[in-house]
Simulated assay, not measured.
Amino acid sequence: MDQEELINAYLEGKLSPEDQRLFEQLLENQPEYKTILEEHRQLKIAVTLEERSKIKDFLEELDQKEKGIPKSKGGLRSWIYSGIAACAIVLAGLFLWTSLSMTPGEKIYKSYYETYPNLIAPTVRGESQANLESDAFLAFDNKDYEKAAVLFENLQHEPDSDYAVFYLGICQLELGRPEKAIPLFLKVREDASNPDQITATWYAALGYFQLNKLEEGTQAVNKVARTEGHPLQAKAQELAEILK
Rank of each mutant, 00 (worst) to 15 (best):
D191F: 13
G105K: 04
Q172I: 00
K213P: 01
P159K: 09
P122N: 09
S16V: 10
N142T: 11
N131Y: 11
I80K: 13
M1F: 06
N194I: 08
S53P: 00
L62M: 15
Y10H: 12
K110M: 10
D135K: 09
L184T: 05
E215H: 12
N131I: 07
Y81P: 00
G229N: 06
L15D: 08
T48L: 10
F209Y: 13
D191N: 15
E32M: 04
A121F: 08
V47K: 11
A136D: 02
K223L: 15
N154F: 04
L76Q: 11
G83T: 11
I170T: 03
T201R: 14
I80E: 10
Q210P: 11
E153R: 03
L155Q: 02
K71M: 12
D162F: 02
W202T: 09
T227S: 14
E215W: 08
G176K: 08
I36K: 08
I108M: 03
H230L: 12
S16C: 10
I120W: 05
A92C: 11
R52Q: 11
L206S: 05
N222I: 05
F137D: 03
E18D: 10
R77P: 00
L155S: 02
K213C: 05
I198L: 14
E153P: 00
L26D: 06
Y81N: 07
A240N: 01
K73A: 13
F209D: 01
N194A: 06
G229Y: 09
F23Q: 09
F58P: 00
K73D: 12
N222T: 08
E66C: 05
L27W: 05
Q42W: 03
M1P: 07
E24C: 11
A121K: 13
E127L: 12
F95W: 10
V221H: 03
E127N: 09
R189C: 02
L155N: 02
H40Y: 14
E146S: 09
L37I: 04
L186K: 15
E32W: 05
E39W: 01
Q20E: 15
A86F: 14
W202H: 07
P195Q: 13
A240G: 04
R189P: 05
T115M: 06
T218N: 15
E216W: 02
D162H: 05
P122Q: 06
Q25C: 04
L138G: 04
I7H: 01
A200Q: 10
L91V: 09
Y33R: 08
R177E: 15
D162C: 03
P183W: 09
G105L: 04
L214S: 12
S72Y: 08
A164S: 09
L37M: 08
Q30I: 09
H230M: 10
G93A: 14
N222P: 04
K147N: 12
S111V: 00
I198M: 14
G74I: 10
N118F: 01
E61V: 00
G207P: 05
C171N: 05
A236K: 01
E61S: 15
S111L: 02
T115Y: 00
T227R: 14
K56A: 10
E12L: 15
E50H: 04
L175M: 15
E114H: 02
E106C: 02
P104F: 03
W79A: 14
Q30S: 05
T48Q: 14
Y109C: 03
A9T: 08
Q237D: 03
D160N: 13
L96P: 00
I108G: 00
V90T: 12
A121N: 08
G169P: 03
S101I: 06
E216Y: 10
E18Q: 14
